[in-house]
């Protein structure tokens, strides 16, 4: 009877508390505006392990993070390239250094999250140069949000 009672008694409809601070939910019970769950919360920039980075592949989580030379970039805006079905989808949520250096999209160039991190010691000078070009490209285009470090007991 909310609408009629408000109309006849001179009341107004009150919305759910958008601040989340007062503990009040107003007089309507639809919870559609409280749809923000933990998945929507922003990720704190800082240290990532291969295991924690993996879920940001555009599929398990909407966000797309890619690591190059130990730095993690937020490539969510480049979803058409790095997102599911994109040409670089393999790189999403992983360390893409070797793939970019060798210009290869093959799975062989990527390490799983439970393997030791790639030290890239066998790259030749041309590949290193190409990798550095990619780094400057990513630095200019995408925000750097942290660094990728090996997880004790998993990657080292």
């Amino acid at each position: 009877m909310s609408f009629f009672s408000n109309m006849f008694l001179g009341g107004v409809r009150t919305e759910n508390d958008p601040t989340g601070m007062s503990g009040s939910n107003g007089n309507n019970n639809d919870n559609q505006n409280n749809s923000n769950n933990n998945d929507d919360e922003p990720v704190v920039a800082g240290k990532f392990y291969p295991r924690t980075l993996y879920k940001f592949n555009g599929h398990d989580d909407e966000k797309i993070f890619i690591s190059i030379l130990g730095r993690v970039y937020d490539c969510t805006q480049g979803r058409q390239f790095y997102g599911p079905s994109g040409p670089y989808a393999n790189f999403a949520g992983r360390d893409a250094s070797r793939g970019l250096a060798t210009n290869s999209f093959e799975q062989d160039c990527l390490r799983d999250w439970d393997q030791p991190m790639d030290q890239l010691q066998d790259l030749n000078p041309d590949q290193v140069e190409q990798l550095n070009d990619w780094v400057s490209f990513f630095q200019n285009k995408y925000p750097c949000i942290g660094e990728l470090v090996p997880e004790p007991g998993v990657n080292i």
Binding site: V12, R13, T14, E15, D17, P18, T19, M21, S22, G23, S24, G26, N27
Partner: peptide
């Protein structure tokens, strides 16, 4: 045109 409850209005201005 949203109207918030008094508990919000007394503590916050949107």
């Amino acid at each position: 045109y949203r109207v918030f409850s008094d508990s919000v209005n007394k503590n916050f201005i949107c």
